[in-house]
């Protein structure tokens, strides 16, 4: 007897968003990336084809980070001392996007400056043709100064500027709006706040096809199940037709996983935890895989080995099985 597989037909879909602009569209990127467009829950290929696979970004910094695991610093070596070189090396791993995070201070502890931020962003744009996400330091006043300068100096590139939060989004959104960029909004693991921030950003007049959302996820063992549920709920609302939840989701499993003790610490941990590097890569990979399965459109990673593994996971999940 033939078995009929029940299929959901959803009235809504996720917005399609294109990152980066080539010369033809007023930018300098050699390629662009389009995400979103889903019409069904993740990888339910029998219900609706996914128009775009999730994409991978690697995170780089404007200078050698002070707070990264030595495993990451050892891997990148001297490359991490020069953002342009780092960007090139990151591009060589086959990622589709780069996320450049600005630091609060220089190596000597002096505050970062708009001039420096612009110079670094320009050097990265010159070194690679990939679309770029530029994230601030996480400190509102500093971010507003740095990101406005960056936005103006890179007009038309369709960068993603982050991070917009409910307490600090106006200046960044205005800068994106005036200079042809996109924004990333981050909210602390709460569906209501995610939706509200999308509303607030769109109320300023930024078109919805220039807004990504990061619902914050936690890492494996550190609340990822809450993050998973929030993403799932947001995606279901999007498919049900709730316009203010239909943004593609950007998540940062690299940031989340590499701040856990399991990844960060190699000494004085139980012997049964095993090899440190293996464990750290597993942590980043497992975190990212769970998020991809809950609907992430962009995953930002830190270690190239994780990039390789997540690439395999995405390809396998995206392969449409032959239906009997």
């Amino acid at each position: 007897m033939p078995i009929e597989i029940p299929k959901d037909k959803w009235p809504g879909s996720v917005r399609e968003i294109t990152l980066g602009a080539t010369a033809a569209d007023g930018g300098t990127r050699t390629s662009t990336v389009t995400v979103g467009g889903e019409k069904a829950l993740p990888y339910m290929h029998f219900e609706a084809q996914m128009p775009h696979k999730p994409v991978i970004a690697l995170e780089i910094r404007d200078r050698l980070p002070d707070d990264w695991s030595t495993l990451l610093l050892e891997h990148w070596g001297d490359t991490a001392k020069d953002p342009a070189a780092w960007a090139k090396a990151a591009e060589a791993t086959g990622v589709e996007l780069l996320q450049l995070t600005l630091s609060l201070t220089d190596a000597d502890g002096n505050p970062n400056t708009p001039e420096n931020a612009v110079a670094v962003v320009k050097s990265v744009l010159a070194a690679t043709g990939l679309p770029l996400l530029v994230f601030g330091t996480g400190q509102a006043e500093m971010d507003n100064v740095l990101l406005v300068a960056v936005a103006e100096a890179t007009q038309g590139e369709r960068l993603v500027l982050g991070i917009c939060e409910d307490k600090n989004y106006r200046t960044i959104v205005a800068a994106a709006m005036a200079n042809g960029h996109l924004v990333n909004g981050r909210t602390p693991m709460d569906v209501n706040l995610s939706k509200q921030l999308n509303i607030l950003i769109s109320d300023m007049g930024l078109p919805m096809d220039r807004i990504l959302m990061d619902p914050t996820t936690g890492a494996l063992g550190y609340g990822i199940e809450y993050g998973f549920s929030v993403m799932e709920r947001l995606r279901m609302a999007a498919l049900q037709g709730d316009s203010m939840t239909q943004q593609p989701m950007l998540v940062t499993p690299g940031f989340e996983a590499w701040k856990t003790k399991e990844s960060k610490v190699g000494k004085d941990v139980p012997a049964e935890w095993g090899d440190w590097l293996k464990r750290a890569i597993h942590w980043e990979t497992m975190t990212a895989t769970a998020l991809i399965e809950s609907g992430a459109d962009i995953v930002v990673l830190r270690h190239p080995e994780s990039v390789k593994r997540i690439r395999v996971a995405i390809d396998e999940l995206s392969a449409v099985p032959e239906m009997a």
Binding site: N192, L193, Q196, I199, A237, Q240, G241, D242, S243
Partner: peptide, 15 residues
């Protein structure tokens, strides 16, 4: 719980 609550829910188009 048909539509996700947001503080501005009344200003949004009905779903």
């Amino acid at each position: 719980n048909k539509v996700i609550y947001a503080d501005s829910y009344l200003e949004q188009a009905a779903v």
